[in-house]
Design a protein around this nucleic acid. Structure first.
Length: 801
RNA sequence: GCGAAUGUGGUGGAACGGCAUACACAACGGACUUAAAAUCCGUCGGCGAAAGCUUGUGGGUUCAAAUCCCACCAUUCGCACCA
């Protein structure tokens, strides 16, 4: 008679046993087949884990545990993305050193993850704020700088009025700060930038080599936003270089009836004495400058603009003068900051032309331009277009582009929406940028031997009022000498963004204690690329893109041997609170895994997180649903009382092997919910049967182990087997799945009319005879002719007329 | 506006183009119990008198559609004047 299922004692016991046995540590034996499973390492916030975190963690834990049992040398590491604003803000409030806050938070996370029984290799933990780690983050930055991929630019940045920090475009949501929600304003500042745009083509093209979920590929492609078109220069009197524009539709150039420059365009300054209404123009520019990008697009419904009176451009196709306007619907930051407007075939140009009474000329036939712009013109015939009249759009594009090239006023051009990566943060709690500024030598890297450049100790972490970081007050730290000429020099006081440390952490896991290089080439060659990387959809255009960029750079300079870091990338759905809203402190609906592990057990939490629904779907939490999973594990536990005999019994063999197959295949397909339901069904079968043999139960327990490892190990031990972590994943026997009879659904004209059990392996003719001779089905075919007889899988369809 | 995803019982969800609703939750009934909990065993989508109809709506392809195609509606997420 088994005792009660005491999850607390059992879970504690096995977590301790696994620790002692070091059974989840990856081996440095590079001759073994390897498997690298990776989850996004957490930012150790003060709030600890909530039940959303364990979903992806458990999912890859399931993968990792199964792969180990299949004989792979598995690397399933964990670490902490431990630099970051919330910690710094907490430090500002309390005066406690961010390092101490971070250490405390990490120990909470570590305890919570151990409580969940996650089989991480804790011996390889990394933490991005650890100097022995960020030494190499700084080293990579120096390499980027050396290769000309890091540069300083004076440019308007998004500045959060509350966090007092510059933000990347990606971190601005609807004109507010992604983190705190405060308004973001534009501010000019000298900033470090990384030339991710140099890698734009490869970041798109190499998506073809990797197994990422299609939605992830699509949003990366859209984010990079490659478009192929042409540049062309329109002549303007008094402006010798001409007005250069970018267009994706060179074929429509005959329909360009006016031009628009963005308010910041330098043409306005150059031609200021020729523009007769220059005051109006400057007033418009002033007005536009006060709008944020957000306001500009918010007010998109109503187009505004001012003509540059006295200025005309010559349309090179028609040789006719066309007016030039200034409007903020044209952005300085994309293309050339100027456009040719083709109102007949562009909605924005059409609106503008209609409002200001500018001519509209149709150049692609097929629409009705008196009502609205005809934009559905990717194909069609050119009209009103001189030498390309009658051509199809594709041909016309090619012809006009070539014509521009011949005349020396244009060329084919690819543009991207992707901007360079704003890499400076005016913050204390980040990696110092290892450069000094010298009056004579300019920006100079510090020697590699001096890495890591550590953060100075401070008493107060508050940023200065001008927006620079607390480091601006660390005068002793700032003042140094130039590594090149020895003259007095100053350190950079900006730090790196959070995305820096997380861009390469998967490499460090391969060789985390190496103090000679970021990781040895052998370790990287063996472990990379990551076989399966799972993370949030919200990181698709930030972290995932940044880390692919850094990886490609490190590939180019010979640090890693593969061009892509991750072979497979999936994304999990969010877990919502029971009320269907996001879990949030402010809604007071956060569910903490600690209390659930206490009351129901980690195995129950894990099983429920995997059973809750399709892994990539957003799903609300259900308290009664969790209870159902506990009930399932209770039922499993009581199987101990039903053990009778050894071996596999014939009558259970089919159900057992079907279960092995289903669980094995479903885990691989990320169908964790149906893997669990298969085990539930099998347990139901056993209850109906009344007993289970010791060996059958052993097999079931191994299948259960990835999901509920503690209870599985405990029961397995009680049955007298060696630990599961030393066992192998079971294989199913296809022959066990074969039945000698099969029940068919019998349809007439596609409608189900009944069922019939027949021996397997009948020919269609024999089957047809059996069906038609069966009196049960006579009413459906009597007096009719059988036109067609189809028997596929478990269905027979008889077509009668 | 553009892009992506989703739409199946009271609920979460199953279903390589092949018997729609597996598995669970909730509900209900029974056994056990002095009683309750727990447990075990059962019942359980809707409409229709019935034949039947029914996977957001309407079309299409097919012997056969939740599944593929087209249009539409709804919800969610992302981007948003990208020329």
């Amino acid at each position: 008679m088994a005792d009660k299922y005491d999850h607390i004692a059992i879970e504690k016991k096995w977590q301790h046993t696994w620790d002692e046995a070091h059974c989840f540590e990856a081996k440095d034996d590079y001759s073994l087949p390897k498997y690298y499973a990776l989850i996004e390492f957490p930012f150790p916030s003060g709030a600890g884990l909530h039940v959303g975190h364990p979903r992806p963690y458990t999912a890859l834990d399931v993968i990792a545990r199964k792969k180990r049992l299949e004989g792979y040398n598995v690397l399933f590491p964990i670490g902490y993305d431990s630099f970051g604003l919330p910690t710094e803000n907490y430090a500002i409030k309390t005066g406690e050193h961010p390092r101490l806050v971070t250490e405390r938070n990490i120990s909470v996370y570590r305890r919570q993850m151990r409580t969940l029984g996650l089989s991480f290799d804790y011996s390889r933990e990394v933490s991005t704020s650890d100097p022995s780690y960020y030494k190499w983050t700084q080293w990579i930055f120096l390499k980027l700088y050396e290769k000309g991929l890091a540069y300083k630019a004076e440019l308007p940045i998004n500045f959060c009025t509350s966090c007092k920090v510059g933000l990347a475009n990606e971190e601005v949501i609807d004109g507010t700060c992604e983190r705190c929600g405060a308004p973001v304003v534009r501010m000019k500042r000298s900033q470090w930038m990384l030339k991710i745009t140099e890698y734009a083509d490869r970041l798109i093209d190499d998506l073809d080599q990797v197994d990422f979920a299609e939605r992830i590929k699509t949003s990366q492609r859209n984010w990079i936003g490659r478009s192929i078109g042409a540049e062309a220069t329109f002549a303007i009197d008094g402006y010798p270089e001409g007005l250069k524009i970018y267009t994706t539709r060179p074929d429509t150039m005959f329909g360009a009836t006016y031009m628009v420059v963005s308010p910041e365009h330098p043409l306005i300054d150059t031609l200021n004495d020729r523009i007769t209404n220059i005051e109006d123009v400057l007033a418009y520019r002033e007005q536009a400058a006060h709008k944020s990008d957000f306001e500009r697009s918010e007010l998109a419904k109503e187009k505004t603009g001012v003509p540059l009176e006295g200025i005309y451009a010559i349309n090179p196709c028609t040789d006719k003068p066309i007016p030039v306007w200034v409007s903020d619907y044209v952005l300085m930051s994309y293309g050339t900051g100027a456009i040719m407007a083709v109102p007949a075939h562009d909605t924005r140009d059409y609106e503008f032309a209609t409002k200001f009474n500018l001519p509209i000329i149709e150049v692609v036939a097929g629409g009705d331009i008196s009502k609205k712009a005809y934009t559905d013109c990717e194909t069609g015939t050119m009209v009103n277009s001189g030498f390309i009249n009658g051509m199809q759009v594709e041909e016309a594009k090619k012809n006009v582009t070539e014509w521009l090239e011949q005349k020396g006023i244009g060329r084919k051009k690819t543009n991207f929406k992707l901007r360079d990566w704003l890499f400076s943060r005016q913050r204390y709690w980040g990696e110092p940028i290892p450069l000094v500024y010298c009056e004579h030598c300019g920006w100079t890297p510090i020697p590699e031997e001096e890495l890591p450049l550590t953060l100075p100790e401070m008493a107060d972490y508050k940023p200065a009022d001008d927006g620079s970081s607390a480091l601006s007050r660390a005068t002793e730290w700032i003042n140094t000498t130039c590594p090149k000429c020895g003259a007095p020099a100053e350190r950079e006081i900006d730090t790196m963004p959070n995305w820096a440390g997380s861009s390469w952490y998967y490499m460090r896991y391969c060789d985390p204690h190496n103090d000679k290089c970021l990781a040895s080439r052998e370790a990287l060659d063996y472990w990379l690329p990551v076989d399966w990387y799972n993370g949030g959809m919200e990181h698709t255009t930030l972290h995932l893109l940044y880390s692919r960029f850094w990886h490609k750079f490190l590939y180019d300079i010979g640090i890693v041997g593969c061009p892509e870091p991750y072979s497979k990338r999936t994304s999990h759905g969010m877990i919502l609170a029971e009320d269907g809203r996001k879990m949030s402190k402010s809604f007071n609906n956060v569910i903490n895994p600690d209390s659930l592990c206490e009351s129901l057990g980690a195995d129950t939490v894990r099983t429920y997180e995997m059973f809750i629904g399709a892994f990539d779907q957003t799903i609300p939490w259900s308290t009664t649903g969790v209870m159902g999973c506990r009930r399932f594990l209770d039922r499993v536990w009581r199987l101990l009382e039903m053990v009778d005999g050894e071996g596999e019994r014939k009558e259970m063999r089919r159900a057992l092997h079907a279960c092995i197959k289903k669980v094995t295949e479903d885990i691989e397909r990320m169908k964790f919910n149906t893997a669990i339901s298969a085990m539930m069904s099998f347990v139901n079968d056993i209850y109906a049967n009344g007993s289970i043999t010791r060996d059958e139960l052993h097999t079931l327990l191994i299948l259960l182990d990835p999901f509920a490892p503690h209870i599985a190990e405990e029961m397995n031990e009680r049955l007298g087997f060696k630990p599961i972590y030393e066992s192998s994943w079971p294989k199913w026997d296809d022959s066990a799945l074969v039945e000698d009879t099969v029940e068919l659904g019998i349809q007439f004209n596609g409608r189900l009319r009944g069922r019939m059990r027949v021996p397997v392996g009948l020919s269609d003719d024999e089957l047809e005879r059996l069906v038609l001779e069966n009196p049960e089905f006579a009413p459906w075919h009597e007096g009719k002719t059988v036109k067609k007889f189809i028997a596929i899988k478990n269905i027979v369809n008889v077509v009668v007329v």
